[in-house]
Design a protein around this nucleic acid. Sequence first.
DNA 1: TATTGTTATACTCTATAACTATA
DNA 2: TATAGTTATAGAGTATAACAATA
Lengths: 155, 155
Amino acid sequence: MTDGSAGHRPTERADLAAMIGPLGKALMNDELPILQRHGLSMWAYAVLSTLDRTPLRTQAALAQAIGADKTRIIATLDDLQDRGLIQREPDPEDRRARLLGLTAAGERLRDAAKRDIQRGEDENWLAHLPDDERDTFLRALATLAARARPDRDEP
Amino acid sequence: MTDGSAGHRPTERADLAAMIGPLGKALMNDELPILQRHGLSMWAYAVLSTLDRTPLRTQAALAQAIGADKTRIIATLDDLQDRGLIQREPDPEDRRARLLGLTAAGERLRDAAKRDIQRGEDENWLAHLPDDERDTFLRALATLAARARPDRDEP
DNA sequence: TATTGTTATACTCTATAACTATA
DNA sequence: TATAGTTATAGAGTATAACAATA
């Protein structure tokens, strides 16, 4: 018996959660000072990144997309708007809702921050994977991450 | 120009942190009800898992190994000891320190919990990866996770 | 005096609920 | 009345600092 299907030796691999949790924490720790240099909080960066991909029609949808409560992003949106990084105006067709989007300055800042962040990730993390594992790892990770998106319902 | 090395199209992949963060959260959400069925908190399970691999000589070392503050695990250790799941006795050679280890009951509980957790991870996550990506993903993840261990100093 | 473990306090973050305005 | 946004309050989780015991 060399596999662990029945015996007293239950663990051939570490739990995914036990590996991914601390890894996410370490990535955050790397990312924080970079964001700070660009004057962005983690939530602010999440907002800029999400609005880039999909301009949204309500703040609630944005909050759900980044896995936050509606109430948690308001101060962040206030600040981003004051700094001219996002557009945020009442929808003429339903003035309760706020149309959200990036300004040109917001796009530039997001691009600059993202470039620095991914450069750091390349150097500190991906560079330490064997060449023949890196692409597969990224592809598989993208698959799992898509499955974990906060706005998604499980099938 | 098809690569993003210089232009206005800076992002070919999502940030690692943006993928791994929500994924870790989703894994936690899956894991919590399983742990609850076994009467374990996340910290308690981290303690049992870590003591399994390496019996430790001080609580501070244990805290560091699981990325927690020394003060945060005390209530957890009290509870685990009361339930007979861990050993925790003053070191005869230095009675300030506490020798830590698992009891037989602690090992059994850890094994049972780990089996359920990994079964859930297999079904809900790894099963959705192509067969030829799964092993490479796990190997690469283990590499990065080892690099992210809380007790480690970066080279 | 320094170190291990413990307890007490303060602070941050997050979640819940109440309020305003539009519909 | 129902919904989008906002504000206010309460709670959980975490970090910091003081304390007791041993070396």
